[in-house]
Amino acid sequence: TGRRDDTGVGKSSIVCRFVQDHFDHNISPTIGASFMTKTVPCGNELHKFLIWDTAGQERFHSLAPMYYRGSAAAVIVYDITKQDSFHTLKKWVKELKEHGPENIVMAIAGNKCDLSDIREVPMKDAKEYAESIGAIVVETSAKNAVNIEELFQGISRQIPPLDPHENGNNGAIKLGKQTAQTGRRCC
């Protein structure tokens, strides 16, 4: 059903794939699949991702601002096999534009690209839309580990380097110059 689809676009799978696929020997603190961390190199810097999950259910939409306040990037996931989920995505983008932090990096992930034979959302639509809002766009497959890495690399590149005086989202573990970011995915 639609509701189930809203929450079933695979955002958790993307993060799980991202965090677990890579050998990150530091055991990161996690809360189930809701909070995960991962450090990735980006040029000369190490970027530490602090990834917050949000509840996708419609009834919890109004709580979302609490989660994205102060975050550096947001990943919004839709299901390429569900046109509905792309509509919902647009609502999220609008909401983020209006109430989200300034200069938040937005990334749009069209998940389940392994199921392109039952695709409902054309790649072209997503690209055009992303361009119009200045967001990164990638089609991914959490199942087959397609483009997951690229998605986060793309975010990494767009995060402006931290002002050394500002201790903003700096994690507790010092890893030289690093950027911490909270990526959230909503659908």
């Binding site: 958790s12 809701s34 999950d53 509840a55």
Partner: peptide
Amino acid sequence: DYKLPMDDLLP
């Protein structure tokens, strides 16, 4: 062993 995503955890 079940890892709760936010969709489950929050309720």
